[in-house]
Design a protein around this nucleic acid. Sequence first.
DNA 1: TGTACATCAGTGAACGCGCGTTCACTGATGTAC
DNA 2: TGTACATCAGTGAACGCGCGTTCACTGATGTAC
Lengths: 207, 207
Amino acid sequence: MGKQGYHHGNLRQALVDATLRLIAEKGPQGFTMAEAAKLAEVSTAAPYRHFSGREALIAEAARQGFEIFVTRIEAAFDAGRPDPLAAFMAIARSYLAFARSNAGHYVAMFESGLTPGTNPELADAAGRAQAVLTRAAAALSAHLPVERRPSAVLFAAHVWAMSHGVVELYARGAPAARAPMPPEDLLESGIRVYLRGLGLIPPDSAP
Amino acid sequence: MGKQGYHHGNLRQALVDATLRLIAEKGPQGFTMAEAAKLAEVSTAAPYRHFSGREALIAEAARQGFEIFVTRIEAAFDAGRPDPLAAFMAIARSYLAFARSNAGHYVAMFESGLTPGTNPELADAAGRAQAVLTRAAAALSAHLPVERRPSAVLFAAHVWAMSHGVVELYARGAPAARAPMPPEDLLESGIRVYLRGLGLIPPDSAP
DNA sequence: TGTACATCAGTGAACGCGCGTTCACTGATGTAC
DNA sequence: TGTACATCAGTGAACGCGCGTTCACTGATGTAC
């Protein structure tokens, strides 16, 4: 694992880490193989021992992102503890926190323009991420009478869309709009209204 | 306006159109000055008579996008006709339609990584877009008693976030997730739940 | 324990390419008289 | 209506650059005997 010497030891991961750093700092277009190699202190030809090319390296960064994402979301949900509602809101906060703390991963996952069909492992990891959110949605709405219970897939998709939208529009430097409040509060209040619409929390005061 | 001859006639707009086409087809990174010039049937130096550089050209594409966006949204809202709710849902549909039909504009506006501060005209156009959505939200919630009336800015931000999230996650080839239904229906049902949460439509059957 | 050798993970130089941008220029246009 | 001339909007060639990728190579490592 030592860095000196002819053999790097863990170049594959070092390249992924360099990719994440570059993407986070300069956007997906700011990432180049040459610079990743340089960051990993290795010749420009070395990356090709581990990745077939630029796209493959970004895809691996995205895949690891989904992996970590799933772990984080699951930890936040904590099997519905202390109660399904609190656990669900914890997921929302965790979503935003992930986008912030793992900007490189997030961009690789959602903004790098990867063509999903080409990489089954990536598609698989992304699918598992969706599954976790769906499970959380199902848990939160499980106590509703069947005829009023929403489709968990649909429920999860709505919340995911709002979360993603908040990140893209308000938690970045996008020219779209200035956020009326911190993204965390914006998302939490939005989800709260949505959950009220589903009858999952009582009609309370205005948001 | 004739294309033949030494002078192009309307090169500035032709370059913007070329930019939109390239961005729509290959993403913001697929756009190059050289190719835009080629599409406009002009030498590679000509664009610099009209734009200071690459960034300025993309920014103009985005600005025009916001301009059209405002027009479309306003037309869809139609001053709240036939009723505020129907008008509001028309905006949502219009948002998705715009993202589809004006993919180049949409990408330039939201996915090109423009730094907003640098271009006041762009920031202004974006601000007006937000204002339209806010006005629609205010109109829809105007009849609520004051203490239950949500902040229109907040309301608009939530709906915009969900709309944007649906576009990004489900109306593109993103590796994120397969949509459980057409994006239009997904967005409409999501907004419906949200509006129910605000007390703007009665608690009906499950979505 | 030593040695021979296959395999692996790097190097360094080079390639062809297309990019953004600049330059001195030139053809077309509009205007003053 | 003609003419001189300033201005404008193009050209074409060139620049320096950094990119992704490939190649023959070489140093390090692991394994069989």
